[in-house]
């Protein structure tokens, strides 16, 4: 047990270090850029008094290290400060939007993950025959388009031509779950299309890698059916890489969500962030960047932890 616990502790410690370093990077990215942030926010026509006021409000007269430490202590206490544009508390605004975003991403994940694994298995089973080719072609096409264009293609054909679902994903309090699901149907479809391709390709590669092992050849030679071989012998050994693939793609989903939310005017984190980037509302952007980095780094860490746990050599050391 000692080895396993040590590996896990190491990985979690690494995750925390990364998170800390990411907070520095995000802070430096917004603070030490060439050019005057206050000037950028107010534009060229700003009066010197307004600039001085804004600098004082942003704390720009303090040394960067002091500003970073007070910002980080705030973040650790769940206090992201107030937005420049409307003076609202950022943490409150984020809370509601984050749950909307997680709802959207969660729906997409529930559909995409089993589907991707199944399609990956089918592609391996019929390797180099038409089902494999067809799946590969479709996935190649879908990774060749940016997320927002897939979104508008879906809106054009499914919402406008077929009129099956609403083209905008309005979500508000008091909606029933069924209404909510109907509203997010299209954004979920787009997210599924976006991650499915990557996930399926990586699943296929992971299983094919296992299929080249000697014990698979033995199973083939003793006359087992192809699907039994894949399901009983290859899949259990491919679980670790596949789970890894799934986690990496969930992390990817978090980014895809940003663009898809803007397309469907969905009130989530992504839209909140993009809105405030164009308004140059630095505290909001820092907060959103931190939340996204946190989710992304955590998912990557979970992927590695699952991979460690799924490895029988580490679970049963000699």
């Amino acid at each position: 047990m000692g080895l396993l616990a040590r590996l896990l502790a190491q990985r979690i410690a690494l995750g925390l270090v990364l998170l800390f370093a990411a907070s520095i990077l995000i802070f430096v990215g917004t603070s030490l850029m060439p050019g005057d942030v206050a000037q950028e926010i107010l534009g060229q026509s700003a009066t010197p008094e307004a600039l001085a006021n804004l600098r004082a409000e942003l704390g720009l007269n303090e040394p960067p290290l002091t500003r970073y430490i007070s910002w980080l202590t705030g973040v650790l206490h769940g206090d992201f400060g107030t937005a420049l544009t409307n003076n609202m508390d950022i943490a409150t605004s984020i809370g509601k939007r984050l749950s909307n975003t997680l709802f959207l991403a969660g729906c997409a994940a529930i559909i995409a993950v089993p589907l991707a694994v199944l399609l990956g298995l089918i592609a391996v089973r019929f390797r180099d025959r038409w089902p494999d080719r067809l799946i590969s072609t479709i996935t190649l096409a879908s990774i060749s388009l940016p997320e927002f264009l897939i979104g508008y293609l879906v809106i054009y054909f499914v919402a406008v031509k077929l009129r099956w679902f609403p083209s905008m994903a309005m979500v508000y309090d008091g909606m029933t779950l069924a209404q909510k699901l109907n509203a997010v149907a299209l954004p979920v479809l787009v997210l599924v299309l976006v991650v499915l391709a990557h996930m399926m390709r990586m699943t296929r590669a992971a299983i094919l890698n296992v299929m080249q092992s000697a014990y698979i050849e033995t199973a083939e030679l003793k006359g087992l059916k192809r699907f039994t071989i894949i399901w009983r012998h290859a899949f259990p050994n491919a679980v670790a890489p596949v789970v890894n693939v799934v986690m990496l793609n969930l992390a990817y989903l978090v980014v895809g969500v940003v663009v898809v939310e803007v397309v469907f005017v969905y009130p989530g984190m992504g839209q909140y962030m993009v809105d405030h980037v164009s308004k140059r509302d630095v505290p909001v952007v820092q907060a959103c960047g931190m939340v996204f980095a946190f989710v992304y780094i955590s998912l990557n860490m979970i992927a590695d932890i699952v991979a460690i746990l799924a490895n029988p050599r580490l679970r049963h050391p000699k």
Binding site: G29, V277, F292, A293, I297
Partner: peptide, 14 residues
């Protein structure tokens, strides 16, 4: 460890 799009948004805000 930070998604490229998110990092780009952070930088482009200033």
């Amino acid at each position: 460890s930070i998604p490229a799009l998110i990092f780009a948004l952070v930088v482009l805000s200033v």
